[in-house]
């Protein structure tokens, strides 16, 4: 059960990283909007973190699958799929020449993604606590604890 806790802790770290990357991009975009940033800088900043984010997200998703949390995996599939699509169509990077025409849609897309990540964040937190409680209190309640079956989805 210690592995369980460690695993969820890894998820937690990845999730924090995803959230941070995403927030960073959103902030860059709003900076551009309010003219604190020029398009060249914006493109180089965002494009530098796009691929890391995609990879991280892929790892996040695959780890769920490997660990057998198929329901959590299913929840991450939409984002993974969308990322793959963008990458395959070569549309994942910001086009510096057309930044302003895609600005609002890019921002919206990232905010929606932020919502997803926040959702995972809450789940991961819950699971960490659950795993922690199970780990530290296992002796008391044993395998019969009803909470374990509820949380083990």
């Amino acid at each position: 059960m210690a592995w369980e806790l460690i695993l969820w802790f890894i998820f937690f770290i990845i999730n924090i990283a995803l959230l941070a990357l995403n927030l960073y991009q959103i902030i860059c975009l709003s900076d551009l909007e309010s003219d604190y940033l020029n398009p060249y800088e914006l493109a180089s900043r965002i494009n530098a973190v796009v691929l890391p984010e995609f990879i991280l997200q892929g790892v996040f998703s695959v780890l769920f699958l490997l660990k057998g949390h198929w329901f959590m995996f299913l929840l991450t599939v939409p984002i993974t799929y969308y990322h793959t699509m963008l990458y395959m169509n070569r549309k994942h990077l910001i086009d510096v020449t057309e930044v302003f025409s895609v600005l609002s849609s890019q921002k919206k897309y990232r905010i929606i993604k932020l919502g997803f990540y926040l959702f995972f964040f809450t789940i991961v937190i819950v699971r960490i606590f659950a795993a922690g409680i199970l780990f530290f209190n296992r002796s008391e309640f044993g395998e019969l604890d009803i909470r374990s079956s509820v949380l083990e989805f």
Partner: peptide, 8 residues
């Protein structure tokens, strides 16, 4: 048109 936007 033919130009590039530097800010909004």
């Amino acid at each position: 048109g033919n130009f590039m936007l530097r800010s909004t």
